[in-house]
Nucleic acid binder design. Structure first.
Lengths: 183, 183
DNA sequence: CACTAATAGTAGCGACTCGAAACTATTGCA
DNA sequence: TGCAATAGTTTCGAGTCGCTACTATTAGTG
């Protein structure tokens, strides 16, 4: 355990991310587009607006606007205007978008092949790291609905006390932009 | 352990890398420049040429050429022409470059604060992942000199059997572009 | 030793991306 | 009703990246 460990770990994360990004180009998507597509594929129906993508990815609304437009041109997402708030838009993945988002990347296969102990420790460590870092910066966590303090379990899914809506079982494991850690 | 674990881990890596990149801009460096600077600060004296940065970072030589020129403009690196091979150049960090490369980023502090068990497991998992991935792609590992199969320990440092040179103790923990895993 | 191939690095171009600022439209607030 | 805040878009300019072509140097081959 040398004193340079933090920088080594940071370098590993950066390098792995770069290697993973490399695969995006094969699908004709730049990294920002792939990030948005992946986010949308995992976000719940209240969290699929441009501003949410913007908050998640850390880029401006203007940039995200262009990114989503590019995804739409490529037929991967489609926009749906809100009926309650006529300013807001929600993006949904098309079948092609779903296929692309759920496509297994080379790095996924490698992760899947790791010993379960290793991958579990890896996930826990990364999650811990992200939580600490977001805590320092006041950033939003975008955690899973089910782990939010506004979430109540029900026999057939869940219930969000913040938005006052029932949730299907599948929805409780999606990302929510309103997420606040339990407790 | 859901079936989506690989994608969750990939998303965590990507997001952490993005958050870490965000800090680069504070130093007036774009991510590519910060990657090059960090690489140069950790590479041994045989591994500081543009082509090595190119192989490490995965961008083209042309791009790296521009990146290094930007770093030179900012006074962070200085070039030194080789005497043996007049085509090749080696880049060294200036004092300002050293200072910037070794500056602690917010994410480093967070990593340093993790329980030792967690960070050790994290590093091991990430290294494992990188090794597997590079193995699949035939990419170079850029590992530490000391862990290379051409390295022999000596009482006062080490010796590289590939390049036939003696190594100071500090050099044995630097990155080498010729690195091949032991055994 | 000459000739060719390979390597190291650079230059210029074009496509694209990103962020900043200004803008429209809609909603909330007082 | 009027003003501020919010959601999203547009435009523009700086900068980046990869590609191709180029020079210079070194290695390989007969």
């Amino acid at each position: 355990m040398t004193p340079h460990q933090p920088q080594r770990i940071r370098a590993l994360i950066d390098r792995l991310a770069k290697l993973s990004e490399g695969e995006d180009w094969a699908a004709d998507l730049n990294p920002a587009q792939m990030t948005a597509l992946n986010y949308l594929s995992r976000a719940n129906r209240f969290s699929r607006a441009p501003s949410h993508v913007s908050a998640y990815s850390g880029s401006t609304r203007g940039t995200v606007s262009q990114t989503l437009r590019a995804l739409e041109r490529k037929g991967l997402v489609s926009e749906r205007k809100s009926e309650t708030d006529r300013r807001s838009i929600s993006f949904e993945l098309t079948d092609a978008g779903e296929a692309l988002a759920s496509a297994e990347k080379e790095i996924d296969r490698v992760i899947a092949d790791l010993p379960e102990e290793t991958s579990a420790a890896l996930e826990a460590g990364l999650e811990n790291l992200l939580r600490q870092l977001l805590g320092l910066r006041g950033g939003k966590a975008f955690g899973l609905c089910r782990t939010c303090r506004h979430h109540r379990r029900k026999e057939d899914g869940g219930y969000c006390e913040l938005l006052s809506v029932d949730l299907k079982p599948a929805e409780t494991t999606q990302i929510c932009h309103e997420h606040e850690p339990a407790q």
